[in-house]
Design a binder for these strands. Sequence first.
DNA 1: TCTCTTTTGCTCAATCTGAGTATATCAGAC
DNA 2: GTCTGATATACTCAGATTGAGCAAAAGAGA
Lengths: 308, 308
Amino acid sequence: MNSGRIEVGLDAVIVAVTDEAPRIITLAGAPAALPTGTLDPALDRTLERALRRWVREGTGIDLGYVEQLYTLGDRDRGTDLEVRLITVAYLALVKERAPSPGSGAVWGDWYGFFPWEDWREGRPSVFGTAIVPALDAWAALGASAGDRAARRERSQILFGLEGSSWDVERVLERYELLWEIGFVSEAGAPESDPAVHGAALALDHRRIAAQALGRIRGKIRYRPVVFELMPDTFTLTGLQRVVEALSGVRIHAQNFRRLLDRGGLVEKTGIFDPTTGGRPAELYRFRRDVLRERPAPGVGLPGLRTSG
Amino acid sequence: MNSGRIEVGLDAVIVAVTDEAPRIITLAGAPAALPTGTLDPALDRTLERALRRWVREGTGIDLGYVEQLYTLGDRDRGTDLEVRLITVAYLALVKERAPSPGSGAVWGDWYGFFPWEDWREGRPSVFGTAIVPALDAWAALGASAGDRAARRERSQILFGLEGSSWDVERVLERYELLWEIGFVSEAGAPESDPAVHGAALALDHRRIAAQALGRIRGKIRYRPVVFELMPDTFTLTGLQRVVEALSGVRIHAQNFRRLLDRGGLVEKTGIFDPTTGGRPAELYRFRRDVLRERPAPGVGLPGLRTSG
DNA sequence: TCTCTTTTGCTCAATCTGAGTATATCAGAC
DNA sequence: GTCTGATATACTCAGATTGAGCAAAAGAGA
């Protein structure tokens, strides 16, 4: 028993938000891929150190906040069938935009991989033109009447159809359903239209990116992780744009700012940014003390009420 | 490069709640250990299947709900220094009590490993007798005044001292602090008194168990995972006792039941359990439909308000 | 000075939460 | 039979939180 060599890979979803667009580092190629390293059992004392080292060497980026996402171990992943590839996926957040050298690493628009996840300008048009028809067709193919109803219901819940509300966090479940029905494919199959089906990534990298997006959308609620993506000082509107970029929905500015200062998450600097095009906006900074004061400090998103 | 053999281990924290006590499967020994298997790269198609197979073979238990916890890869884990052991830890919930055969697997009281986590009868007495003194001593040893203040503050926040409230979810952070100050030790060092310091587990298994407890306490809030631990029908008081057992705090019965039926999580069966010692309690069952209706159906715990 | 834009302050109703009071329905003691 | 004790369940109420909108402040430019 226990034949077969094992190799441990480390995949990183490295996130930044620039110009109101969430971006992740990808390695150019056809299809593109996430930055991936391999654990050197002799060299790296911990997995996270291995990741940081590898990303620094490969892309020149020094990671700040890092969090483990998931470990994938299915047999037919990877390219070499002789070795069993176990991959530990990580989510990393970096401040500002750190342009990469000539390493092949480029920032790619996150929503380019998941066009259906960006509801900031209302329901994306791909819903009407492609997603809903595809879901309907799949539902109609159910074996029994009960099966068809179940399929329809699953579609409606996950994609916010027919009165169901859009749950920003269920990114992975939606991706998996779309994969199940053949709307997206993981292997580098050339897909019809990236603007509709999303851009492809190598292997199961798009699935990992989906999980990362869901994770960050959830975490933003109860931990102040957004600030990892912000410069030291920022306007509240700027912060709001970043939260909106990640969550993919618009939020009510007045309530957002009420939440922030009632929660003690930010403090004024007394300095103003006059370049708003309207009234100048005061610059704020993150109050680190909140970590010690409050149990679950986050920037609330709408929609996820206990009942609803 | 890449010398050194890699092995992938799978650890399972298998949870059940019986008689109002949360229990986990441990393998008898000195110290006891979590059930651990090794991935057979040739045999097991996925990690989760490997885990299910291994647990079934080793303990006779068929796992129901399974969720990945974390992957540990530090170098000096494991016993054999020649192989780099990567361990993927899983949390599993099983209905009812499934007594194990003569496999050496026994149910162990979860709070036996973390006596300070059970606040159902008020603050555990170990706080006054051992934990607070230990934390104070550690704080007093800080290098500078600022360092001492920071240590004190960290203690107070994590352990709910001096006006801070007890946050049931931060199990792992508390465990790590206690480990840092030498109150608990991971290696099988014979500890003074298990009733005070908690019972030991092999390697880093106690840390994994702590993470599992924190995870389930958090998840209970927004996903209906408790029902994985319940029989098909149950009384609301029975359900409440299980939630209390896991969360380690008492909850208000009237509000608990209001939350459940307002949230549509359960439905009446029309059958009553007369063995309560008082008014008979109606039996309920879990309403699976709630999964499709509500974004985040969970059984609310007290204490974690957005502001606090 | 007027208009447009963005930031910021404030109000109001609906809902949710924590906590308490009251009632229903059993078993067993007398 | 009635009383007592226990548990289950219903209802009430104040305070906090949330979603939504109105309105004023403060800049740029016509």
